[in-house]
Design a protein around this nucleic acid. Structure first.
Lengths: 241, 241
DNA sequence: CGTTTTGTTGACTCTTATCAAGTAGAGTGG
DNA sequence: CCACTCTACTTGATAAGAGTCAACAAAACG
């Protein structure tokens, strides 16, 4: 695919919104890095691959790398003492992950699909950022985006009805994909139990919520990973209720 | 108070953890800004005051300012279409707030107590950051902290039992305050309904959860705003369950 | 093509939301 | 400083909704 080729050949890529500069086409994230920045970052990055299900790092490990996804989807998660895992975020191509505190990872990460990513050694990246304010600014902008998404996720989790949560989740997915193409059908990269861990419900409740939305004529599932949104307004209404 | 005097006289202050450099005393946040940076920031800041309950900004407004709290507590929140408000974060002295996307605030902010803060004009601050990579790095570090807290908040919200949520909330409060002093009694800056909006429960459920924890002998409320933690281990166990 | 994992469905239980009534606290003016 | 008022909080009864468990169905995997 042409787009994928461009991303690969161009080096590391970060997509998002500038905190303060209005975009030319609002509500569409843009490439935050200049071509020179991407080339510069390419010199310190190595490309790494993970198979579906691979653990990329565990909470508490020394945070040697920051990652930039080229292709695939990863999840970051926290594990409670009972073993239940709560998913903090799904991350997609052109996202960053590898959040650390005082040199230790603050959550765990695992590949949801096969993943290709750039890995930046933390120490080297830190030096680059301290020497290049513009580059650093773009990383900061991406962090603002991540913070906003975490707050939206918290908002989703504060909702009480399973259908509301699922509706919001589907809207998130739609926005992630509409960056690439304006398609009516959504592809879900993750399984039902990952969705459950993200929206804070049991897998059973997620399953029932899908059935409910389908019964209302809001969505039309083709199979477990493909959903067509029939009634965007109804979804919006459910999501905002 | 000596500490407060230092903060005021020293100019803007940001407290947190460096993402990659281990702290000398782990688990204690440190001042991220150098004295020169604080002095420099002071030249572009004005001091603003808000009364308890004042709206500081509303979601969607032009994001003219970034704020740094000197004293008091604020909350950032999202309002759903039904009017229910979900609190994204409580912010304390030495915190930053005023998150924006493409020049618009992405949430609303309101004073929970009387508040004093520095206000940085966004455009001016942006220029400073782009000219001073070290200063910018410290803002970025603070953003990492905020992102981590948002993810911990999401983790709290994903918990199913009211007592668990409240236990986690009380632990958060304890950590916020233990930065200042190691006291056994916690002071709650916010009312019950703000706690409810933060942990994603009804005020009634929060009230019952308090009663439950007290009945278990885990906490001992002195009045509505003062709680003594009797059994830290039990609280930990409840929080992690 | 069988095996194993993942997802769906139903019956039942448990928890919290909701609503309404009562109470305590904070704030206000005398 | 006290009484009054108003808001915020607590408490109880009820019902709606999601969790759990178990059995079944459907994919995914080798």
């Amino acid at each position: 695919m042409a787009t994928k080729g461009r991303i690969l050949s161009g080096g590391p890529s970060i997509r998002g919104f500038d905190p303060w500069v209005p975009g030319r086409s609002p509500n569409k994230p843009r490439q935050l890095l200049s071509d020179e920045e991407r080339a510069q970052l390419a010199t310190i990055a190595s490309v790494v691959r993970f198979k579906k299900g691979d653990v990329i790092y565990l909470m508490g490990e020394p945070a040697k790398f920051i990652f930039n996804i080229i292709g695939g989807v990863i999840k970051t998660y926290l594990t409670s003492s009972t073993g239940a895992e709560s998913i903090a975020a799904f991350l997609y191509p052109e996202d960053l992950f590898g959040l650390a505190r005082e040199g230790k990872y603050e959550n765990s990460a695992r590949a949801v699909t096969p993943v290709t990513a750039y890995a930046f050694p933390a120490a080297v990246l830190r030096n680059r950022l301290l020497k290049n304010a513009a580059l650093e600014f773009h990383f900061m902008a991406k962090l603002c985006n991540a913070l906003r998404e975490a707050q939206r996720h918290a908002f989703l989790l504060s909702q009480k009805h399973a259908a509301t949560k699922l509706a919001m989740f589907l809207q998130f997915q739609e926005h992630v994909q509409s960056a690439n193409a304006k398609q009516t059908e959504i592809y879900l990269s993750m399984g039902r139990s990952d969705i459950a861990d993200y929206v804070g419900l049991s897998p059973a409740a997620v399953s029932r919520a899908f059935r409910y939305l389908a019964a209302q004529g809001v969505i039309k599932p083709r199979d477990r990973r493909h959903v067509k949104i029939i009634d965007h307004d109804a979804l919006e209404k459910l999501a905002c209720e």
